[in-house]
């Protein structure tokens, strides 16, 4: 019975994926495009060459960090929708350190290290703001996080066009790029940095271990599942919720730091690129189980990068990947609801 129901669950998941594909295909047909051709182009765009695959990994890394962070807050029963802003603040903090030290005598390695650390702290503090609003101010973390996202975006724009503007005139293309010495080293000829990849994977592994094998993780889970009972068990629930925000924000901040140090080498207006929201979607899709975060985030990254082909080849908008990702999450959640209804009846 147990294994039977596992296959049953798996079947339901497959059905959800099929439905999401069907749904997206209908959208494509309405847009007068060939669905199969579009999917093929996405695949080709993502996997046709080593270069393409490494570019998918470049997208995968921030998504991995955002997903890992989202898992921590999800476990505590929190909807940290502010990850997007936390990535942005990470990027801003990193840029700040780089700008302060770029003309100093400090060795580049140390500057980069401090910049990464600063990104972590910046994201964590921004999350702490949402966390404090939630824990001590009674502001729902969704509202708080959303509001702070807007503030973060506004702050980026202000910095780029104000204090940090390029010599002469500010531009949407961002701040003045940093010198090569302050870039995280990438694989020659490619955009991928081993350092970034290492940080991304390490973060997920740490979160996995934290959530599945430590007392901290179990207590966090208890807080998320039943805050009242958790406090009767003697768990200081506010502290745990704040810790979840700090960890999540820190990881998001790392993502922002890596975007600055390894990808754009400057602060750009849309530095968070929606990875915060995508990370939340990954979390929902994998039903908050850390072990699935890596493959699902990779799949999302492939969709994101592959769909860049669409405007070039098919004159379609690249936001199609978003349609497919959103549809996937919705159908998986819906099919889960359907399954529960059936199980209740049976």
């Amino acid at each position: 019975m147990k294994s039977g129901s596992r296959w049953y669950r798996f079947g339901i998941q497959v059905a959800a994926v099929v439905l999401a594909l069907v749904f997206t295909s209908i959208i494509l047909l309405i847009a007068k495009a060939q669905p199969l051709e579009a999917y093929k182009n996405i695949l080709v765009g993502s996997f046709s060459s080593i270069e393409a695959i490494t570019n998918v990994i470049v997208v995968w890394i921030p998504l991995l960090l955002a997903s890992a962070g989202a898992l921590v807050t999800f476990t505590a029963g929190l909807w940290n929708i502010g990850i997007e802003g936390q990535i942005t603040l990470g990027a801003i903090s990193t840029t700040l350190v780089l700008r302060l030290l770029q003309h100093s005598d400090v060795s580049p390695a140390i500057i980069i290290f401090l910049a990464v650390l600063s990104g972590f702290i910046g994201g964590a503090l921004w999350a702490a703001l949402a966390g404090a609003l939630k824990t001590y101010g009674g502001v729902n973390e969704i509202f708080g996080g959303l509001g702070l996202n807007f503030v973060a975006t506004a702050m980026t724009i202000w910095l780029i066009f104000g204090p940090w503007k390029r010599p002469g005139i500010g531009s949407m293309s961002g701040t003045e790029p940093f010198a090569n010495t302050l870039w995280l080293p990438t694989i020659p000829g490619l955009r991928l940095s081993w350092w970034s990849l290492l940080i991304g994977i390490l973060a997920l592994v740490l979160v996995y271990v934290l959530l599945s094998n430590t007392h901290f993780g179990l207590k966090l889970k208890a807080v998320g599942k039943n805050r009242k009972a958790a406090s009767v068990f003697g768990i200081p629930t506010s502290n745990f919720m704040m810790s979840a925000f700090l960890i999540c924000g820190g990881l998001a901040g790392l993502a922002g730091a890596l975007q600055v140090l390894a990808v754009y080498h400057r602060l750009i207006p849309s530095i968070s690129s929606g990875y915060g929201y995508l990370g939340l979607m990954v979390g929902m899709l994998i039903n908050y189980q850390a072990i699935w975060a890596a493959p699902v985030a990779f799949f999302f990254a492939a969709l994101n990068f592959g769909s860049i082909q669409l405007p070039i080849v098919m004159k379609l908008d690249s936001s199609l990947s978003g349609v497919l990702q959103g549809a996937l999450v919705l159908f998986v959640l819906m099919m889960d609801g359907v399954r529960k209804r059936f199980e209740k009846k049976a």
Partner: peptide, 21 residues
């Protein structure tokens, strides 16, 4: 509501009430 934590197993409950230092 207050006594036990739905979504956690019996074992997880015993871990929480044991030594968690």
């Amino acid at each position: 509501e207050e006594g036990l934590i739905p979504g956690l197993t019996l074992k997880e409950h015993f871990i929480l009430t044991g030594d968690t230092k």
